[in-house]
Design a protein around this nucleic acid. Structure first.
Lengths: 147, 147
DNA sequence: CATACAATTGAGAATCTTTCTCAATTGCGA
DNA sequence: TCGCAATTGAGAAAGATTCTCAATTGTATG
C-alpha cells in the first residue's frame, strides 16, 4: 500500500517506472541501482563499476555509465559533486531533500528541511532573478566517525 | 582605505597575498585572475584558456590549470559545479556568499543571505552529525535574459 | 643593480574520465 | 514463440587533467 510513495520500490514498481518510458528493465540497470541502494553512500564510478562487476560479472564500464544516465533521467539516482570536484552517485532521496555527506566514510543522510523555498521567493523579488533550481549539500562528520 | 576589505584587491594587495605563501606573482596568474574578474561570469577551462591567451599570448593550458589551482588555494577563485556536471571557475566572492548562476548567460550574482548557519546547528543537534561545510548554488534566469 | 636560486612556465607526453561505435545479445509486446 | 527495437560489451576515440623536464623568470640578498 505504501510502496509507491515509501522508501523503496519493489521490483514491480521499478519495472513500471522503466516501462513507462519504454526503457528495458535490464539486469545491468537493476544491478547499478541495487549497489547504490545497498551501500547507502556516495559511490564513485570506479567503486560502482567494481561492485557491479561483483554482482553481475561481465558488466562493462560503458554500461555502468549508461545505466547511471538512465537512472538519473528516471529520477532514481542523483549525481553529486564532491568537494574535490569529482563526481559520485547516490540513490535519489524521496521528495525534496538534500544530502549530508560524511567526509570520513561517505555515508549519506538526507534531510528534508530545505531552507530555500522562501529564500528563493525573496531573492526573486529582490534581485529580479527568477530562481529555477538549487543545489545544496552539507558536509560533516557523522556520529560513528567522531568516535 | 577600503581596498583591503572591499570588492577588489589592487596589485599591491595581490602581491602581498602571493608573497605571504611564498608564491610568485607571475603575469600568467594575474592574467587568469583578471580574465575572471572582467568577465563577471563562470568560465569554463576552455573559455578561460582562450581569453588568457588573448591577454597574454603564449600562455599554456597547463599553466591555466596550475594558476587556477593556486588561486583557489589562495581563496581568490572558486571552482563551481554546473548542472550538467562540468566544472567552471569564478572569482571568489567576499565573505560568506553563494552564487546565483543565470542558466542563459552564465552571469553570476552573489548573495549573502545564507540560510545555513542556524540550520547547521539544528541539524548537528538533531542528527548528531557535526556539520563542517556546505555547498550551495542557485540557478535561475536573470532579468536581462527574461526579456 | 647584479646574482643565484627556487619557483614557475611551455610543450608535449601520459594518464585519467567519459563517450562513441558497432556487431551481438536480449527484453518484451504481439 | 517470434521479431524488433533497445541494450550491451569491448575497444576505439575523444576530452579533460596531470605530469615531466628543460628553459625561463620572479625575488631575496648582497
Amino acid at each position: 500500500m505504501k510502496t509507491k510513495s515509501g522508501m523503496t520500490q519493489n521490483s514491480e514498481d521499478l519495472r513500471a517506472i522503466f516501462h513507462a518510458k519504454r526503457l528495458k528493465c535490464t539486469p545491468q540497470r537493476l544491478a547499478v541501482l541495487k549497489v547504490l541502494k545497498e551501500s547507502r553512500a556516495y559511490l564513485s564510478i570506479n567503486m560502482l563499476d567494481k561492485k557491479v562487476k561483483e554482482m553481475l560479472p561481465g558488466t562493462g564500464l560503458a554500461t555502468v555509465y549508461r545505466a547511471l544516465e538512465t537512472l538519473e533521467e528516471l529520477g532514481l539516482v542523483v549525481k553529486v559533486h564532491l568537494e574535490d570536484g569529482c563526481h559520485s552517485y547516490a540513490v535519489a532521496p524521496e521528495g525534496h531533500m538534500h544530502p549530508i555527506v560524511c567526509t570520513e566514510c561517505s555515508k549519506v543522510i538526507d534531510f528534508a528541511e530545505c531552507p530555500l523555498g522562501e529564500l528563493s521567493e525573496k531573492l526573486t523579488h529582490d534581485t529580479g532573478i527568477e530562481i529555477q533550481n538549487h543545489f545544496l549539500q552539507l558536509f560533516g562528520k557523522c556520529r560513528d566517525c567522531r568516535a
